[in-house]
Write a protein that binds this DNA or RNA. Structure first.
Length: 919
DNA sequence: GATCACCAG
DNA sequence: TAAACCCTGGTGATCA
């Protein structure tokens, strides 16, 4: 049967333009969008031989911006800005590209591409053809019917009626025109009815059948804004209906038969690709020409055994017998996927609403435990008695013969931990994904399901809604809750099977088993403990800062001669560099003067007339930063029940393997300035206890000395010498405050993947001078240069770097054609093995810490925080000496025996009544 | 949501 | 040839 493909050329060129960097060809013409468009046509050409592939094809374009719709409504598309300057010359090139593929290119005066597409679609359907519209435009979705679908090549998916129903809250494609008319479209300036969005529009159409029905029913609706708007703007709605209608009453510019595909001749395509220098496509063309013409669809992809997700088979467990059955099967097979549903994303404060379990693909259930609305009159659904269910789940979660599988199980461990349930043994798919694919993509379940299972998970917001109408999960009806929750466990189980096989095959078992897997429960306990914060200290600082901020503000305004928003870099830049005429203002790419701290410090140092105001601004900045980000924000984060702050650590937050900390971020509490440092005094110990802080000393430089095998650095660390002084001697011949500071900067720059320009900017010397220092460094510390070269070779060959423990970080951008991106990837790749190994080591220390303290008879020593190279503890005063010895020993030997370092690791320990005092 | 600025290791 | 601007993070304010 003939299958007609209609390509929405205009739609694609805009999307390609915004999605690709601004490429130019060798003639200096911008071609980013052309390139995107060409690759899209290519993709379609590849489908030529497939079963569902095209037999007929045409590209449809917009002829001019003025169409019959402007006659209907002069405001139509009135606000649309003209296309970007460098896109305009690409429009004719789109026609060239289309011709190069020997495809017909159709455009008609007074009609939009959408209308022409509709005309052809109707004509083809009338003849019994299949039709595919290559577009994802919502207006075109109106045309979907049996025999016609949309194909979105950017996201590689086909859009049918289900997609419309999903996107527009249950409506059919035939009703879409009425919905679009009601909701309007701000981009095209279709007015619609004020206050009516997609949701309301869909609801109205579903209730009243069509637009006419809605407008007729308006009078009878209950009084309110919606009713008034419907009545008042009825005419606009009718006009909008006309605007969104696709007009298919004109004769076809070219008969259907003429659109038949007769193959793509090689020569014109090759000429086109060569003209623009699309080398990757030329290479492909060579391959295509050589390859025998076969049906690519017959090539078998390795099929996964798992059946597609089927939500209908999920069970809602509402009685004890059913729960017992699920638990019995879990015990029999030895593993089960688990997920908890709660009232909040803050695990330490969340209410438990339900638990879902999965035993095999599509064999999953949901156990509601806390459903029932806040409304006392609402009916509470049948649920197993909470205590009974939790007791049974506790037995299962703590059963050493059953592996519990979760996605970000740390969250569930905290929620269940708060209810006296521990979870062991366990596997965590978010951690597995991170250990396999860090740097390639995110590790959220929805993204992993899409990437690995080609499955679109039910969106959480589709279950609970958004904004004012959002409900708690406990208010969701059990059918919807079961589908959502059981699907999570089902998907987790499917992901686990794949990752479990990949870990050994890809050499990531070591880091997973030795470092990351055992860490999750340790972090869960740290988060539950939290750290005590003295609200009084923060409140006092907030007050003090507020006074000083007001003072500075007045002074700055007086010096400026006018009030303005100091916090606005734009306004501040204008005041300093325009009004006051200070010299040396640099504008960034957004046209705003740079007013960052290096720039302002330069102005302050240079003396001059602006120095005073600049100093006041710097002062103001520091104080507002401290107040807004720390003293105010931290008070709000104190858990009222515990009086403590419970941060949340992300195990997958940093590509290198480091942890990251959020809500609040306790890894960036000030310390470098005296004013900021005071904030640390608010982090205190309970009476009778003290805070102990243990820091690795220069761990990254030590690791660099080991990994790059630099004899001079190794010896210096072995002897306990000051490493920055040594560097100063080697580079500058003498040690004083200045040379040591410069040497320190260079040492860090080396770790961060040095560039002459970066170092030059940091040291305020010329790039040539910076280069000379780098050369001298490489000469004095042989090994560093070789290490960097080897790291780059490895990442270019394999796409990833590795730590001493085998942790991979992928750098897909290492092959980027964009120089900036590529060099950024190179610097990050130099740094990743060192930063990542350091992260591995402290994680191992954390895993071993609790058992070691336990074994030493120090169960009251509690590990609270990790700050990359520092661990913070709270412990009884009397335990300090014994605990210090254990902590130091565990940290210094954390790499062993898996990795034996050629340099010692040093740990500095301090104690005090507060975190500030412990440093 | 993008941008700027700035806190930490 | 021009541009490059040191790595890893998170948060708050402003502005479009």
């Amino acid at each position: 049967m003939p299958h007609l493909y209609l390509v929405d050329g205009s739609g694609y060129i805009f999307r390609a333009y915004h999605r690709l960097p601004p490429l130019t060809n060798k003639h200096g013409e911008p071609v980013g969008a052309v390139y995107g468009y060409t690759t899209m046509l290519w993709k379609l050409a590849d489908e030529l031989h497939a079963a569902e592939g095209p037999t007929h094809m045409a590209v449809i374009l917009d002829k001019s911006s003025k169409t019959f719709r402007n006659d209907l409504y002069d405001q139509y598309k009135a606000h649309r800005p003209p296309p970007p300057e460098d896109l305009v010359p690409q429009f004719p090139m789109i026609r060239d590209a289309t011709r190069a593929f020997s495809l017909p290119c159709i455009e008609t005066e007074g009609l939009e591409a959408d209308d022409i597409i509709a005309c052809y679609a109707k004509a083809a359907l009338a003849q019994g053809w299949q039709v595919t519209i290559v577009s994802s435009d919502k207006d075109l979705m109106q045309l979907i019917e049996p025999g016609l679908d949309l194909y979105d090549t950017m996201n590689n998916r086909r859009l049918g009626p289900e997609h419309v129903a999903e996107k527009f809250h249950g409506i059919a494609p035939s009703q879409l025109g009425d919905v679009l008319a009601l909701m309007g479209d701000s981009v095209d300036n279709v007015p619609g009815v004020p206050g009516v969005g997609p949701k309301t529009a869909a609801k109205l159409i579903l209730e009243h059948g069509d637009l006419a029905g809605v407008l007729a029913a308006a009078e009878g609706m209950k009084k309110g804004k919606l009713r008034d708007n419907l009545i008042e703007h009825a005419d606009m709605a009718r006009l909008s209906r006309e605007l969104v209608s696709l007009r298919c009453d004109v004769a076809l510019p070219e008969p259907l038969e003429d659109l038949e595909l007769k193959g793509i001749p090689d020569a014109p395509l090759r000429a086109f690709l060569e003209h623009h220098g699309f080398r990757s496509l030329l290479t492909k063309l060579g391959q295509v020409a050589d390859a025998p013409v076969e049906n690519p669809a017959s090539v078998d992809l390795p099929e996964d055994d798992d059946p597609p997700c089927n939500h209908d088979g999920y069970e809602t467990v509402q009685d004890v017998d059913a729960l017992d059955r699920w638990i019995a099967v879990a015990r029999h097979q030895g593993w089960i996927a688990v997920d908890t549903e709660t009232s909040s994303t803050d695990a330490t404060q969340a209410e438990l609403v339900g638990v879902s379990l999965a035993l095999a693909p599509n064999l999953a259930c949901y156990i509601p435990l806390g459903h029932g609305g806040n409304d006392l009159l609402a009916e509470v659904p049948v649920q197993i008695d909470r205590e009974v269910a939790l007791a049974k789940l506790k037995d299962l979660m703590e059963d050493p013969s059953v592996l519990k599988i979760g996605h970000n199980l740390k969250f569930d461990m905290i929620v269940l931990g708060e209810r006296g349930i521990s979870v062991a043994p366990h596997d965590d798919t978010i951690v597995m994904s991170f250990d396999l694919d860090a740097g390639l993509h995110g590790h959220g379940m929805d993204e992993l399901a899409a990437t690995h299972l080609s499955h679109a998970c039910i969106a959480f917001k589709d279950v609970v809604g958004t904004g004012k109408t959002q409900r708690g999960f406990h208010e969701v009806d059990l059918n919807a809750a079961t589908r959502y929750a059981a699907e999570d466990a089902d998907v987790t189980l499917r992901l686990w099977k794949r990752f479990k096989a990949r870990l050994p095959a890809e050499g990531s078992t070591r880091v997973y088993e030795m470092v990351d897997r055992p860490l999750a429960p340790v972090i869960a306990r740290m988060e539950r403990r939290g750290i005590k914060v003295d609200r009084e200290v923060l409140a006092r600082l907030s007050d003090e800062f507020a006074g000083r901020i007001a003072e500075r503000e007045g002074e700055v305004h007086a010096l400026a001669g006018q009030p303005f928003t100091i916090g606005s870099p734009k306004q501040l830049g204008d005041i300093l560099f325009e009004k006051l005429g200070l010299k040396g203002g640099r504008k960034g790419k957004s046209g705003v003067y740079s007013t960052d701290v290096t720039e302002l410090e330069r102005l302050a140092r240079d003396g001059g007339p602006g120095a005073e105001i600049v100093r006041k601004v710097l002062d103001w900045r520091q104080l507002t930063k401290l107040k807004n980000t720390y003293t105010d924000a931290l008070q709000a984060q104190i858990n009222p029940k515990t009086g403590r702050v419970h941060t949340s650590y992300s195990l997958t937050g940093a590509q290198t393997g480091r942890l990251s900390s959020t809500e609040p971020n306790l890894q960036n509490i000030p310390i470098r300035t005296e004013v900021g440092r005071q904030i640390r005094d608010a982090f205190v110990a309970e009476p009778g206890n003290v805070i102990l802080a243990a820091d690795y000393s220069q761990i990254e430089l030590r690791l660099a000395a080991h990994m790059a095998d630099v004899p001079a650095l190794r010896d210096a660390f072995a002897n306990g010498d000051d490493i920055h002084s040594l560097t100063a001697t080697e580079l500058f011949g003498e040690v004083n405050r200045d040379t040591r500071a410069r040497a320190k900067t260079i040492n860090f720059a080396i770790l961060y993947g040095i560039s002459r320009w970066g170092l030059a900017g940091r040291l305020e010397v010329s790039a040539d001078e910076a280069q000379a220092m780098i050369d001298r460094y490489f000469e004095r510390f042989p090994g560093i240069n070789r290490y960097m070269a080897e790291t780059l070779t490895q990442v270019r060959d394999h796409g990833f770097t590795q730590t001493l423990f085998g942790r991979k970080t992928h750098f897909p951008r290492i092959k980027s054609r964009n120089q900036g991106e590529r060099q950024g990837a190179e610097r990050a790749a130099i740094n990743a093995p060192i930063q990542g190994t350091s992260a591995d080591i402290i994680k191992r220390a954390m895993v071993r810490m609790e058992p070691a303290l336990e074994a030493a008879g120090l169960p009251q020593v509690r590990m609270l925080l990790q700050v990359h190279d520092e661990l913070v503890f709270e412990l009884p005063e009397g335990d300090v000496d014994a605990a210090s010895a254990v902590i130091r020993d565990v940290m210094e030997r954390a790499a062993e025996p898996a990795v034996m370092l050629s340099v010692p690791l040093g740990v500095e320990i301090g104690t005090g009544a507060s975190w500030g005092a412990a440093h």
